[in-house]
């Protein structure tokens, strides 16, 4: 019958009219993201054993782990740097972490104006001077 599809369409839209809106009023109301959303990382320092497996697993060399050997010959984390500009959020680092110290979070508000701001330091008190690259540069100079 002609017009059956038209009536079907009208039925659907009137259902939408009285149904709930699916729009999220974003800045006022934070969206409820799915639990496995890959937005940002969180590092639990107490759990981290500074093994560097995450840095090895990363295909883009995003992660840089700095550590010192303690008196008990155990590694102690001193710096954890991520250059998120290169990160493709594959999750291999999170997967490979043996102690579940590295996890994804749902904080997606990461936009920034400068490329420098995409570099994140996860250990408090850590400065860029400790980074390996700088040491290399210094030794070259």
């Amino acid at each position: 019958m002609y017009g059956k599809g038209l009536l079907e369409g009208l039925k659907i839209t009137v259902g939408h009219l009285f149904g709930k809106t699916i729009t999220q009023k974003y800045p006022e109301v934070k969206p409820n993201l799915p639990p496995c959303t890959r937005c940002f990382f969180e590092l639990i320092e107490e759990k981290c054993i500074a093994c560097g497996i995450c840095a090895n697993a990363c295909p883009n060399n995003v992660i840089e782990v700095q550590s010192v050997r303690g008196e008990d010959k155990k590694r102690k984390l001193t710096g954890y740097k991520m250059e998120l500009g290169y990160c493709l959020f594959c999750g291999l680092c999170v997967e490979s972490c043996p102690t579940d110290a590295l996890n994804f979070t749902q904080d997606f508000e990461l936009s920034c104006y400068h490329r420098d701001n995409t570099v994140y330091y996860f250990v408090e008190g850590q400065t860029d001077e400790n980074s390996v690259e700088d040491k290399v540069k210094k030794s070259e100079a």
Binding site: T13, H16, L17, G19, K20, T21, I22, T23, K25
Partner: peptide, 9 residues
């Protein structure tokens, strides 16, 4: 109405 028909406010 266009909003409500398209499930937005």
């Amino acid at each position: 109405l266009s909003g409500y028909f398209q499930q937005r406010p």
